[in-house]
Design a protein around this nucleic acid. Sequence first.
DNA 1: GTTATTGCAAACCATTTGCAAGTGT
DNA 2: ACACTTGCAAATGGTTTGCAATAAC
Lengths: 165, 165
Amino acid sequence: MSELTAVAVSVSPADKFREYLTTRGMRLTPERKSVVEEVFSSHEHFDSDQLVDRLSSQKEGKRVSRATVYRTLNEMVEAGLLRKVARSQNRDVYEHDYGYPRHDHLICGKCGSLTEFENAPLAGILEQVATQLGFRVSGHRLEVYGMCAACSRPPRARHRKLDMI
Amino acid sequence: MSELTAVAVSVSPADKFREYLTTRGMRLTPERKSVVEEVFSSHEHFDSDQLVDRLSSQKEGKRVSRATVYRTLNEMVEAGLLRKVARSQNRDVYEHDYGYPRHDHLICGKCGSLTEFENAPLAGILEQVATQLGFRVSGHRLEVYGMCAACSRPPRARHRKLDMI
DNA sequence: GTTATTGCAAACCATTTGCAAGTGT
DNA sequence: ACACTTGCAAATGGTTTGCAATAAC
């Protein structure tokens, strides 16, 4: 078993961030560390405001100013740790882009739930289309709108066809 | 040949808008008419600012205040005439949603330009994925990010130096 | 020391809104 | 008269930025 592999998968978001910061002559300060750790403590989507709240309710000196949160989030996007996934209620929404597989979303118009899915052929199609138009792809965002399984199901027991005869 | 068909396709955006406005007890004022007509005078994507400019440079009394442009654009989205297609340079970008085929976009991260494309297999894939997850699709939004042909080209190549000798 | 970084408050900026004056019926 | 509209200017609200104080190297 390769040690390299073990090492590769064990690079924490904070380490990955430090790596990126170093190449830009920047440091992984306590504030930035707090932000990265808080962000990667849960896989939920979030916006800047929610993150500031979560950082405010921390025990001790973990508080980080709103300005620094914004600045750090931008750096994390640049570093490939986060991705702006959508705009909801006039706010940027982020999700993990590191240690998490690429995926797209089914968005239920009724209950608002997000369902993630992966589809390999998709990327191929996009690449092909883009190439034809001389466009260099760096990423994409795909949101499929409709109604999720739960919301499609009638609230009560389903009507069995036989009952209708 | 059916007259009904002829009538159906001849409904102008302005008429469609008036129809919608009427159902809400609103009127197709000269200002609103100017906006609709300017918007549908070209198939290009546009943002509010560009539209205000276009309306300002009109000959006579066609000028419409910024506030009214914003208000009217929102109504047109509600009426199904326009669609907010993306956010570019921190601005909402609109495109025709009436009398125009469905398509997706390549978005250049450098110059912000939008390129449209149509791809039939795409819808099939989405339908298939969704079905597997019990999701009923009603629509989607796909934005492909990257760099457009013009921006990928080295700066020199853009203006041909030979012409300047 | 020098350079990066933080927090605060102010600035930004696209979009929205309150309101008084105007317009069509 | 009445209800809808407009344009102006002011407000909103998420995000960015200038700057002086602070911390890491």
